[in-house]
Simulated scan of single mutants.
Amino acid sequence: MVVTPTPRPIFISRSNVWTTAFRQFNRPRFSESSGMLYVTFASDEMEEDAEDLGGPRREFFRLLVRAIFQGSGAFEESPNGFTPKLNIAHVQNGVYRTIGKMMSTIIVQGGEPPAFLAPHVVDYIVTEDILQVRVTPDDIADAELRDSLKKVKQASTVDELEEALDCCDTWRFQIEGLPNPVTMDRRNEFIRNATLYHVILHQQSCFNQLMDGLSYYGVLPLLREHRSMRIFLDMPEKRDEVTAEVLACLLKPSYSVLGSDKRPKEELMVVKFREFLQCVENKELGEILGARTLTEEEKDFVQNLGLGHILAFATGSSKIPAVGFQPNPKIVFIHDEIKRHPVAHTCSNELLIFVNAKNMADDDEFEYCFVVALMNGALFSTI
């Protein structure tokens, strides 16, 4: 199955992304289609309706990834990443299959990859062979269970091993095939097999549905044929953050022609914008705005502001999609002596910066206006 040019409309509530997305992806007619999603957002206060040239779709995918792992109730988090959580009602309703279709759609249609799965989950998805799955106790989401297996691993004497095994007595005799008795020589076998049971075998029905859903668009066969593609699902050991330099290079200025009297002013605004990015990256923005009397809400926002917020404001995506942005993001300059707050057109990945005496002044006006725009993204962003 390939993406077809025929648009596939989808209507989403930002306040309830999971429920509204699941209702539509779960419709047989909807999931039978392979068209590019055409996203319309709605809220209780107003209906947003504009041509989706990519921005709303990317924003939806970003919100959907978060909803899958935080709002669906289908996953739980371990120290190594997210793993399916057995939910009988979800199995009966095919939720894991639908999530697989969502993930396939996100990957194929250029969203932020749903790369939050623990490595053992992806191992099993790409091999479907439990003997090839790498596991450690840190793959277990339940803290008490995880700690009990770690105690077994750390035992240095027979007495310590017996004491650690006592903590496992509530479940270990219910699992057929575990070593019994557990000796120092066989404790690693005990730990591996117990972990495999708790993170895969116990949730086998969830994995079966998830893999079935990932067959949508032919993603599962591609994952198994090209193992390097697992980066679309794997929780990276270290999450790559958007840097000021990367973001500055990503948002290319659309300057006036050389020799124009507008050009020097635009170049000055780019310098101020790059300084703003550096301040955000270095957590210096609070100091820059120190002379202002900020509200408590503004103080909290400034303290937690990251470069991903700025990228999401301009494009609808807080991370760079695996397939890149289409069209390429850019800065557009508007010479206007009245307007000061930047505006984003996420459909075309444009950040509009207003060039005027107020924004060019050697004070904190430009930085403060940018913060206000970011805080009130819905007011200063159009789709």
Rank of each mutant, 00 (worst) to 15 (best):
G55H: 10
A194D: 15
R66C: 00
G213E: 06
V219H: 11
N208C: 02
D123A: 02
S260H: 09
T4N: 07
G259T: 14
P114D: 12
T20Y: 05
N16V: 02
L258G: 06
L214I: 09
C167P: 03
Y255M: 01
F75V: 04
A115F: 14
E176F: 14
T136G: 07
R224T: 13
Q204T: 07
K262C: 11
A50M: 04
T20L: 00
N349Q: 05
V91R: 00
L64Y: 07
F232D: 05
Q109Y: 12
P113G: 02
E32W: 07
H202S: 01
L250K: 02
G177V: 09
E281T: 14
Y197D: 02
K272E: 13
D362H: 08
M229P: 15
G259M: 11
G54L: 02
R14M: 01
I231G: 12
V372T: 08
N304T: 10
E297Q: 04
F25V: 00
F370C: 10
L64V: 09
E162Y: 12
H90R: 02
R66P: 04
F116M: 05
S15G: 08
V302H: 11
I88M: 01
E163I: 14
I68H: 04
C369P: 10
P179V: 05
D138L: 05
E112A: 11
T19H: 03
K358P: 10
V323Q: 10
N208Y: 01
G286Q: 12
K272L: 09
E367T: 10
A378K: 06
I107A: 15
R23N: 03
L352N: 14
F25S: 01
I383F: 06
Q109P: 10
E350R: 03
A42I: 06
V371Y: 08
S215Q: 12
A373D: 11
F69S: 00
G213S: 14
V126K: 06
A291H: 09
G286H: 09
V122C: 04
R97E: 00
Q154H: 08
L379A: 13
E350Y: 13
A74D: 02
A322R: 02
D363Q: 07
D142H: 01
A155H: 04
L63G: 11
V372N: 06
F333I: 03
P236W: 15
E287W: 13
N359K: 03
P329S: 05
G286R: 00
E51P: 10
F273T: 07
F190P: 11
Q109R: 03
L37E: 07
L161F: 14
G306Q: 11
A194T: 15
S381G: 13
I288Y: 07
S228R: 07
C168Q: 03
D142A: 02
H341V: 10
E245P: 13
R239C: 07
F313T: 11
G94N: 01
N359V: 07
F11E: 12
I353Q: 09
A312C: 14
L305V: 09
V95Q: 01
E162R: 08
M211D: 10
K238S: 15
I68L: 02
P181F: 11
G290S: 15
S215P: 07
V246Q: 04
P264T: 01
F75H: 00
C249A: 05
Y197H: 12
E237Y: 08
M235I: 06
L64W: 05
F61S: 03
N188M: 08
E51A: 03
V271H: 15
D147P: 07
K339V: 12
V121D: 08
L149S: 10
N80F: 15
